[in-house]
């Protein structure tokens, strides 16, 4: 049941990206080209999504538990803003502005088998793996320096 619900959510999500125009990188780059021939239409995708989710969060607060799950895996809303968050957002934003794909549209567009999409998703995989490796070294370094200190 959990897998079925998750599958349906993924399917509806993909349809929303398609209907919304998010699968057209030229359109995305036009949205980001605020100093040029700006096309603000894609702001509507975020607005529509936020409108539905604003209601969903209110409903969620009244639920004793999720409908088909006993535990909740939602991050703490009020964690502090830190440098890591902002640095990651800058790096992601540069990648988004370079290729016109954020993660969802890139994955959905795999079905086209376009070489550019395959290259993008391959890059995403390398990026995630690089993050895991870098984090492991960083944690080891912190532990070593703590032991030294």
């Amino acid at each position: 049941m959990k897998a079925v619900l998750s599958f349906v959510a993924g399917l509806v999500f993909a349809l929303g990206l398609g209907v919304g125009g998010m699968l057209l990188p030229e359109k995305v780059l036009g949205f980001l080209d605020v100093a040029g021939a700006w096309d603000p239409a894609l702001a509507g995708v975020m607005a529509g999504g936020i409108a539905v989710m604003a209601v969903a969060w209110r409903v969620f607060a009244r639920l004793p538990h999720p409908l088909v799950e006993t535990r909740v895996c939602v991050p703490d809303r009020d964690r502090p803003i830190d440098g890591r968050l902002l640095a990651g957002a800058v790096i992601f934003g540069v990648g988004w502005g370079l290729g016109g794909y954020c993660p969802g549209p890139a994955i959905v567009s795999l079905v086209t088998r376009m070489p550019a999409v395959l290259a993008h998703v391959a890059g995403m995989i390398v990026g995630v793996v690089t993050f895991v490796v870098v984090r492991r070294f960083a944690q080891a370094a912190v532990q070593t320096s703590a032991a030294d200190g």
Binding site: S6, L17, G20, M22, P66
Partner: peptide, 25 residues
């Protein structure tokens, strides 16, 4: 804006299914 907003509503519904059904982002 009609297409983008319609698409955004679908994205919101999908995210709401994950949150209300599975307690996930």
């Amino acid at each position: 804006f009609a297409g983008p907003v319609a698409g955004g509503l679908l994205v919101g519904v999908a995210a709401a299914i994950m949150l209300l059904g599975l307690g996930r982002i």
